[in-house]
Nucleic acid binder design. Structure first.
Lengths: 188, 188
DNA sequence: AGCAGACTAGACAGATCTGTCTGGTACTGT
DNA sequence: ACAGTACCAGACAGATCTGTCTAGTCTGCT
């Protein structure tokens, strides 16, 4: 029911289709043939825009990274209270985790399929995780938290726990525990 | 340097080789041909013991599940202090996470490659996660914690954070934060 | 008018995947 | 001595994978 005919230029269609399929079914299980079929694109066009499948995977994660950065940027622009921003980030995480289409974190899922830490895809994942940790640390510094670095690491744990647990356990029960988890993590 | 010639009966060799390869490189990237080659087993023998690859994946996770159950059982048998047991479980997690061969949680990694929640492999993963949550909840009850269920959920988050972060971030920095993370999670 | 660039359709190569099947060897218990 | 079991070696089928290549269409700019 949700198989829309993709719109716009070829590159956009490819990336949109790849995002949907890679996220919902995994990277290695989804072949190029399937992507070009569902994106309604010729094979030569695909390889014109992306020299190899791994480049598409990287572009998929890079786009997701940009999307999250923009969302956080928008959140920080509306609020001057860093504590509220922090809580809102985690509430949003729980909300998306409770959605039907949720299937975990695109970055950790991809990492599971790319074991080599030197691979370009893993570099993008590492960038994303450094950005996440820095984001938490900056917000904690803005709050005036005395233990920013270690607490940011603890918040990363909770973040990972939410995305993993929302996929594999009961997302509602998990969502109900997020507020308390963050609250306890911040206590020092 | 670590490619040992496998020992023992064929089934053990297959499962041992599969465990090593599936964990270090992923499930879909490792083919049957490679497993039978490194296990020094004939193809017919493989399919005699495991009717399909997915059955081997399931057996691999089931064996890992049993190993962890045994380890926890041994830990609970030596100590009568449930709080110390809980802390030790998390310390052990951080220790294995800091090891060179660590590549995240076998169960969450496998889940990333099996998107269908109804798949037998996902059932095993769900069993494992239910067991983990129940373990935490039982230990919290033994301590006399007033909020066992929600706190167990928070401990699950920290557990997931440790296994994900040990693989993708700096395992040493993460390990140094585990004690504090558990301590804050237990505070009520 | 004409040309460049983006696109489509699809054959093709070469590798690799899972799973089946044939045929032969070696050990073990009766 | 003999049946049963466990195993080995490897060919084979059929599907699927990534990536290349040929050949032709359509559109917009100059």
């Amino acid at each position: 029911m949700s198989t829309h005919i993709p719109q716009g230029p070829a590159r956009t269609r490819i990336l949109g289709t790849a995002t949907r399929l890679f996220y919902s079914e995994g990277v290695h299980t989804v072949g190029i043939d399937r992507i070009i079929a569902e994106a309604a694109v010729a094979k030569a066009t695909f390889y014109h825009h992306f020299p190899a499948k791994d480049e598409l995977v990287r572009a998929y994660l890079e786009a997701e990274f940009a999307r999250q950065r923009d969302a956080v940027e928008a959140l920080r622009a509306t609020s001057t209270d860093p504590g509220a921003t922090l809580v809102k980030i985690f509430e949003n995480l729980g909300e998306t985790g409770a959605g039907a289409a949720f299937r975990g974190c695109p970055f950790t899922n991809a990492a599971a399929e790319y074991p080599d830490p030197a691979h370009p895809v893993r570099q993008t994942i590492a960038d994303y995780r450094r950005w996440s940790h820095t984001l938490f640390r900056d917000l904690l510094a803005d709050i005036g938290h005395p233990d920013t670095d270690r607490t940011a690491t603890i918040l990363m744990m909770i973040r990972d726990g939410i995305v993993v647990g929302s996929d594999l356990d009961d997302p509602q029960a998990l969502r109900a525990a997020i507020g308390e988890a963050v609250c306890r993590a911040l206590r020092h």
